[in-house]
Amino acid sequence: MFDITKLSANETSTVELVGGDDEPLYDDKGARLSITVYGPGTKVYQRAQARQQNLIMDKLKKRGRMDQSAEEKALEQAEFLAACTVSFNGFAYPPAKGLEGAAYFRKAYEDPTIGFIAAQVGAHIGDWANFTKSSAAS
């Protein structure tokens, strides 16, 4: 009998960043800039997703409908991505100097001038394939 747990998803994955022009981003030494994130199979991701869903339900209860501005959506997405981020690799976000952890990451994800980063991380984190271990048979 095949042990299905051999196909368990990895806890984290690394997103190699590209700029708004779809060109790979590198640091001053030529190393790729990237972000490591927790995936959908982790408790960290599941807690962040539950919090996001609870916020939506709270708005529905208060307003009776789900109307959200683009700014509100962007802030909620930034909060979710920050909660799921392990690290920024090869770069810093100076406007968040003095902040740490999720607060630091959230500040970067909220910045519309580098919104292409949040878009990439959001797309990456929502795809189970990015957290799937490669099969030796495939």
Rank of each mutant, 00 (worst) to 15 (best):
A48Q: 04
E100K: 15
A74E: 04
E71D: 05
R32S: 06
F116P: 01
E110W: 01
A108D: 02
D28K: 14
R63A: 15
K62Q: 08
D58F: 00
I114C: 15
A123N: 10
M57L: 11
D67K: 14
Q46T: 13
R32Y: 06
L75N: 11
Q77W: 00
G30C: 12
P112I: 13
Q46M: 11
L99C: 08
C84R: 10
M57H: 09
Q52P: 00
T85P: 08
I117P: 01
Q68P: 00
F80C: 08
T36A: 13
Q53H: 02
A31K: 15
S34G: 15
A123Y: 02
T113K: 10
R47Y: 13
Q46F: 05
E71C: 00
D58C: 00
H124V: 08
K62M: 03
S87G: 07
R65H: 07
S87D: 15
S69R: 03
K62D: 07
L60D: 00
I35P: 10
V37H: 04
P112D: 13
R65G: 05
T85Q: 11
Y104C: 10
Y109V: 04
K62N: 04
Y109P: 02
N89K: 14
Q120D: 03
V86F: 08
I125G: 04
S69K: 01
V121S: 05
L55W: 01
A82K: 07
A119V: 05
G64D: 02
G122I: 01
C84A: 07
A82E: 01
V44M: 09
I125N: 07
E110R: 02
Y93G: 10
L99Q: 13
L99V: 10
L55K: 11
V37G: 02
Y38I: 02
R63I: 00
